[in-house]
Simulated assay, not measured.
Amino acid sequence: MWLTWRAATQRALYGENGFYLRERPSAHFRTSVSAAASATVGTSAVLAGAVLRELAELAGPAGMIDLVDVGAGEGALAAGVLALAPQELRSRLRVTCVDVAPRPPDLPEEIGWELVVPEGVEGLVIANEWLDNVPLDVVEQTPDGPRLVMVDPSDGAERLGDAPEEADLAWLDRWWPLGPVGERAEIGRPRDEAWASVIVRLARGRAVAVDYAHRLGARPPYGSLAGYRGGAAVAPVPDGSCDITAHVALDACAAAGERVGAVTTTLTTQREALRALGVTGARPPLDLAGWDPVGYLRALSRASLEAELIDPHGLGAFGWLRQSRP
């Protein structure tokens, strides 16, 4: 049976007994959340502390404030932020995780668990490695123009199909123009729509998308489709046995957000975003080891985590898209 990559991935990840309905992400690949959650500093992971500072920028002197974690996985980020929040802010926090997977049994009771982003969010929405799992179609350039790449879900074999629909051709022309015969592109229009659906639910505050990304003029010539299973990269076979992912055209998502009401947009890297939020990776002074060896080891552990999160050749290369509504 031949399917488009979008249809095959949708079924493999989110269909009956799909990968994300039965698996926990931390068992298969390392993210900024799992890296930060693998060790703690006091009661909170490093990334949770940075997100809390982002959230604190938006909190007024009174009233409830939302934190919505989209593609929450096991809820580690939301739980970490809640644990770190000072009591005055914690009493005003309304925390919601959004994911298709079942609610983790050990998640704090005050954290909500929903299938979709709630309406009227006032605060911060963060989507960490969510957009890269929104299924999309793959096309290949031919002498007659772009053609959809069809895939056999049982083994990943491919063949060419029909031309994409007009809306997808227009997206390619604007955001991923194809070059010579044989080049491939991933049509990001479903991700634009997914991100726009977040922005329209934001009544006041900021939405942040964090993902491996590329920009116009520097797209990968043969795409970025990949698979992960058990902590290792594998062939992206859409049979439900592995994660299927592709990097995100965050610049296209940004334009989609602006079309539905975002009034400010910032595109940067995780390295720069986290450094601005106080994550520096700086090692503690060596003389601390002499009079507080336990504190020195704790600070050294934190510095190691911070360094991993802002490594320009690793997690620090993630794209950060921030958009706000007044």
Results as ranks from 00 to 15, higher is better:
residue 80 G to I: 02
residue 81 V to T: 08
residue 100 V to Q: 14
residue 67 L to C: 08
residue 52 L to D: 02
residue 94 R to C: 13
residue 51 V to Y: 04
residue 54 E to F: 04
residue 76 A to S: 15
residue 98 V to F: 06
residue 50 A to K: 01
residue 66 D to E: 11
residue 33 V to M: 13
residue 92 R to K: 11
residue 39 A to C: 06
residue 70 V to Q: 03
residue 45 A to L: 03
residue 63 G to E: 00
residue 46 V to T: 14
residue 84 L to H: 14
residue 42 G to P: 06
residue 38 S to E: 15
residue 43 T to D: 15
residue 71 G to T: 03
residue 44 S to Y: 06
residue 70 V to N: 03
residue 47 L to H: 05
residue 39 A to P: 04
residue 72 A to H: 09
residue 63 G to P: 05
residue 42 G to R: 12
residue 44 S to Q: 15
residue 48 A to W: 03
residue 79 A to I: 12
residue 89 L to D: 03
residue 95 V to A: 12
residue 38 S to I: 07
residue 61 P to E: 11
residue 56 A to C: 12
residue 65 I to F: 00
residue 88 E to Q: 13
residue 53 R to S: 14
residue 66 D to R: 12
residue 84 L to P: 06
residue 50 A to W: 00
residue 59 A to E: 05
residue 60 G to K: 01
residue 78 A to D: 10
residue 100 V to D: 04
residue 47 L to P: 04
residue 47 L to G: 08
residue 42 G to V: 06
residue 38 S to L: 09
residue 73 G to R: 02
residue 56 A to H: 09
residue 92 R to F: 06
residue 63 G to R: 04
residue 64 M to T: 14
residue 44 S to D: 06
residue 66 D to H: 14
residue 45 A to Y: 05
residue 87 Q to Y: 03
residue 85 A to M: 05
residue 46 V to G: 02
residue 69 D to I: 04
residue 95 V to P: 00
residue 50 A to Q: 05
residue 71 G to M: 01
residue 40 T to C: 14
residue 51 V to N: 10
residue 71 G to Y: 02
residue 33 V to L: 08
residue 81 V to W: 00
residue 66 D to T: 01
residue 62 A to N: 12
residue 45 A to N: 14
residue 38 S to K: 07
residue 48 A to Q: 09
residue 59 A to R: 05
residue 52 L to F: 09
residue 71 G to C: 07
residue 85 A to V: 11
residue 90 R to M: 07
residue 55 L to M: 07
residue 97 C to V: 10
residue 45 A to I: 03
residue 79 A to R: 15
residue 69 D to T: 09
residue 45 A to R: 04
residue 75 G to Q: 02
residue 83 A to Q: 05
residue 54 E to N: 10
residue 47 L to N: 11
residue 58 L to A: 11
residue 74 E to T: 10
residue 93 L to E: 04
